[in-house]
Design a protein around this nucleic acid. Structure first.
Lengths: 142, 142
DNA sequence: TCATATTCAGAGTTCTTTATCCTAAATTAG
DNA sequence: CTAATTTAGGATAAAGAACTCTGAATATGA
């Protein structure tokens, strides 16, 4: 099996979205995130740590500590998160894995994939986390 | 990093395409495939073995033995290969990994992704290996 | 102030995927 | 029938992804 994005990346997207539903600046603990989102506690900790390092989140230790978005949710796109966690490999490589495939020497689906790839890219760039969070909101989610 | 398809799947696609360039029925050894495609020999052996088990290839032991397509190249689509190796998970799951995401309760990119996903699917279904091989052919390739 | 509970930080472990190795079984050619 | 060649298939190793455990930092209340 192969997912489009890694599990880490999916968890990161879910966590960032959850944080976007909180009042701006409020700290949320790994514990709460892990419980509400159903993500393994320690694994999520590592992911959030990484997102802090990359500058998307801010963290604080100790009681009352936790994580928050490092900037307004409307300024973070889905692409920012994907880029930080998985990188942008999917925008570059031949979808079929042909090493020789390029614009000069395209594989049979080169052009078709270019269109779809751009579609995925603009899907990720055009949605910010505030929008995602707003549309995702439902009673059970928070 | 996360590729769309697994490396196994990419190797399988390349091998099947290579076989499609051979006269129908001719056997090709793992050795030749591995060398020409630059794929690890033993790993490729296992992949081809698996493709035989799945019915896409036929194999024969002994000198003059090797692998060949089990049916005409025009009857094998890219999707057949992907399905055999990676399965069809990408057609089902939420691209952002939200567990609650569904038609009833769509995530922010649910509809957009549905369109792109269908695009990928039809890209894979509409190209058969004969076409892929024909368009891929170039002096160095075989 | 200081003990303590709570939280993140980072090293460590497990599991899956990728890749390698080795022996057996089949088949062809001489 | 023997030797050479090729796939079959299990066992192992290395790399990377997923997950866990322990320790350092810090706020809070006695």
């Amino acid at each position: 099996m192969s997912l489009i994005f890694s599990r880490q990346c999916e968890y990161a997207l879910q966590a960032v979205t959850y944080l976007a539903l909180k009042p701006e600046g409020e700290m949320t603990s790994i514990k709460e995130l892990a419980k509400k989102l159903g993500i393994p506690y320690h694994f999520l900790g590592k992911i959030l740590q990484d997102l802090s390092y990359k500058g998307l989140l801010a963290s604080q230790k100790g009681p009352t500590g936790g994580f928050r978005l490092a900037m307004p949710a409307k300024d973070i796109t889905l692409f920012h998160v994907v880029e930080a966690v998985d990188g942008v490999g999917f925008t570059k490589n031949c979808v079929l894995g042909f090493p020789e495939c390029s614009g000069q020497n395209p594989c049979a689906v080169h052009e078709k994939w270019a269109g779809l790839r751009d579609g995925i890219y603009s899907m990720l760039v055009s949605k910010n986390i505030a929008q995602v969070a707003r549309e995702m909101r439902k009673p059970e989610y928070v």
